[in-house]
Design a protein around this nucleic acid. Structure first.
Length: 684
DNA sequence: AAGGAAGACTTTTTT
DNA sequence: AGTCTTCCTT
């Protein structure tokens, strides 16, 4: 194998195939290349069987990319390698051993919202007021416990405060409900395998023999459960290679413990450590800015990235009036960049919270800038899709009460609250599932329908099953009848779901309701919006991790947004700084930072200060847009004549603060511009 | 049981 | 500001 394209350190990391290895890889230092090359090297040069390699990533996107890149190196053998996310790997183990974990074969996976609604039910049953016992907060608490591998018993020893003791009660009930539903939640997918291995050493041994070579990406983001899981599997052969960067640890809030990376050498005394500090991605300016920012973190291992790349242009900062102006600025710069030959897919806009995407969506639509939202409110979280999936999940696992309750009266079929309550009570008394408890009236009609669909699911294809569900359930009929714009939209989404199943049937070898539901449950992002699309990417900084773009806009750089107002302790603030660091290091050539001095939040206007992180960059590497055309302040009046580079001559019809409404001649008509927009000039 | 109105809550980030 | 929940009326 030709390793000439790797630098010495990278080569070393690839060649070291035996024993524990920690690769501390700075941003843009080619760690994915190292990982994929290493996998190929193991197979081609070392003759390791692909099936004995386990490569773990955090996101589906990352695992998909790894598969693609390994595939380029070794071709179809790739499919024998276990490349998956932690959760997906956990699912595999649980499925292979369901009987030892108190589950039936067709167990369901409850997503975040399913879990929360289950907690709501537990609260209701215990007569606890959801206003006082915030279901989401309790979910987080339980989730935190599970990530620390605390089952209710262990948690009872740990729980000290009044609040924790209250949570404990709910946790216990919640676990029971899960069991009764023949269901697991996301966290169980990590926790159950560990439980399995603790209780069954011979099974652990089987997995240890199977996966002799283990590679883990983004190791700084592992939580206790993930840490213990991989430690157990790798313990026998100790061929474990982990890659990470403490400076990019941004998942502390979901239990990630970047100390796992610091402790690696303690866990594996024979561990080798390789440092990758050479950056191949960014310009010197961008990299120096990033270094300057991150060095303000006290709780870190010293590391300085260097690059041979050119100095590049300075980072730009623009102070927008408000969130609308922010989008106008970005849109304008994008238009300008396109003229210099940069293409849309080389540009990304990064923000702290999903909610910030909305303004960009509307502006980009107006300005005719094609965009795609990466991650975010996904297709699968839409109401109509969740309804449809609820039917599928119920068909697959009739004990899944959560999904039964979701669809039993959706669309409305005259099964009201009282009826449902009676059914739940009956089920509880008889110790059966709600589905089983149904024996008369309208619910019985529903039950018969589901049973029919069950039969259908045995012989029909997935897509045909979906069609039947849409027909028999009345989902389709009701939306068609409604006829509103929104209903049509929902209907389209349901039809779109058929292309999801079609695509799945084409792609996968093993087509079953089971494998399909697994994928739907674990892929929460509507990720594949066709990568090759030439569009600007909009995403959260979290979603941007691992990606790179020629041009990056980081928007909403205000105190309260980034750093987020919820970050109070020093540790949390440092995580916000790492987040900013991750954002900055996504940029290859051009980096634009934008803050808005005013922003609408929760329907209120907020005045925020500029993010302190911007000052940390250092004056040498950043310049304000003040000197730029964006800051020409001209006194405009209604009736003034304007010249626009594209629309020609126009006249100001209205002035609203900094917004001009200008009437252009045919065929352009009325358009609105910010006063300081560079494309317009006053004609004297 | 359904539909509409008032009211609460949201927006941290993901599997 | 927009969505989701709960309450109230029919």
């Amino acid at each position: 194998m030709n390793l000439d394209e790797l630098n010495e350190r990278q080569k070393e990391a690839v060649l070291l195939t035996k024993g524990p290895l920690l690769i501390l890889a700075g941003a843009g230092s080619g760690k994915t290349r190292v990982l994929t090359t290493k996998i190929a090297y193991l197979i081609i040069e070392k003759g390791i069987s692909p099936s004995s390699i386990l490569a773990i990533t955090f996101t589906n996107k990352a695992s998909k990319e790894m598969k693609e890149r390994v595939n380029l190196l070794i071709g179809e053998k790739t499919k024998d390698i276990q490349i998956s996310t932690f959760h997906s790997f956990g699912y595999k183990i649980v499925r292979e051993n369901y009987h030892l974990l108190g589950l039936e074969k067709n167990f369901s996976i409850l997503d975040e919202n399913d879990s929360i609604s289950l907690i709501r039910k537990v609260l209701k049953k215990n007569n606890l007021d959801p206003k006082h016992y915030n279901p989401k907060g309790i979910k987080q608490q339980i989730s935190g416990a599970k990530n620390e591998l605390l089952n209710p018993l262990a948690y009872s020893r740990y729980a000290k405060s009044y609040w924790e003791k209250e949570v404990l009660k709910i946790y216990k009930d919640y676990q029971q409900k899960l069991q009764a539903n023949n269901a697991v939640d996301f966290d169980d997918l990590l926790m159950l395998p560990v439980k399995l291995f603790k209780e069954n050493p011979q099974i652990l041994d089987k997995y240890q023999e199977h996966y002799k070579y283990i590679l883990i990406d983004e190791y700084q983001d592992t939580n206790e459960a993930q840490y213990v899981l991989t430690k157990k599997i790798s313990f026998k052969y100790q061929n474990i290679c982990v890659v990470g960067d403490g400076d990019q640890s941004i998942y502390g809030w979901r239990g990630a413990n970047y100390k796992n990376i610091l402790n690696f050498e303690k866990d594996y005394p024979k561990a080798k450590v390789i440092l990758l500090e050479k950056n191949y991605r960014s310009t010197k300016n961008i990299l120096k800015a990033a270094n300057n920012v991150i060095k303000n973190n006290k709780l870190r291992k010293e590391k300085t990235l260097i690059t041979d790349n050119e100095a590049g242009s300075k980072i730009k900062h623009y102070l927008a009036l408000d969130e609308k102006d922010e989008t106008l600025y970005v849109a304008e710069v994008i238009k300008r960049l396109l003229e210099t030959g940069i293409s849309l897919d080389e540009i990304a806009v990064l923000y702290r919270t999903n909610a910030q995407s909305q303004v960009f969506e509307s502006s980009f639509t107006v300005f005719n800038i094609p965009y795609k939202i990466v991650g975010a409110l996904s297709f699968y979280k839409r109401k109509e899709i969740k309804d449809l999936v609820a039917y599928l999940k119920l068909i697959y696992n009739e004990k899944d009460n959560v999904n039964l309750l979701r669809c039993i009266n959706t669309p409305r079929r005259g099964i009201g609250e009282k009826t449902i309550e009676d059914l739940i009570n009956k089920a509880e008394k008889e110790n059966v599932s709600v589905f089983e408890a149904i024996d008369y009236g309208k619910p019985l009609e529903f039950k018969k329908m589901i049973n029919q669909l069950k039969e259908i699911s045995k012989t029909y294809s997935l897509t045909e099953l979906v069609e039947e569900v849409l027909k028999k359930s009345g989902l389709e009929f009701n939306l068609k009848n409604e006829g509103t714009l929104e209903a049509n939209n929902r209907l389209e989404n349901l039809y779109e779901f058929k292309s999801v199943t079609l695509e799945f049937e084409k792609r996968e070898e093993e087509i079953s309701l089971e494998s399909f539901l697994k994928e739907v449950s674990l892929i929460s992002n509507s990720e594949e919006l066709k990568e090759e699309d030439d569009k600007v990417s909009l995403m959260t900084v979290h979603a941007a991790k691992g990606l790179e773009f020629e041009v990056i806009f980081i928007v909403g750089l205000e105190e309260g947004i980034m750093p987020h107002y919820s970050a109070e302790e020093i540790g949390e603030l440092e995580e916000e700084r790492r987040l900013f660091y991750v954002a900055v290091t996504r940029a290859k050539k051009h980096l634009y930072l934008v803050s808005a001095s005013q922003r609408m939040r929760f329907g209120e206007i907020w005045n925020n200060n500029i993010s302190p992180f911007i000052k940390e960059i250092g004056e040498d590497y950043i310049e304000g847009e003040e000197g730029d055309v964006f800051y020409q302040e001209v006194d405009y009046q209604v009736g003034d004549l304007i010249f626009h580079e594209k629309f020609g001559q126009g006249i100001i019809k209205e002035i609203n603060n900094d917004l001009l409404t200008i009437l252009f001649s045919y065929p352009y008509q009325m358009k609105q511009f910010m006063k300081k927009h560079k494309s317009i000039k006053k004609i004297n």
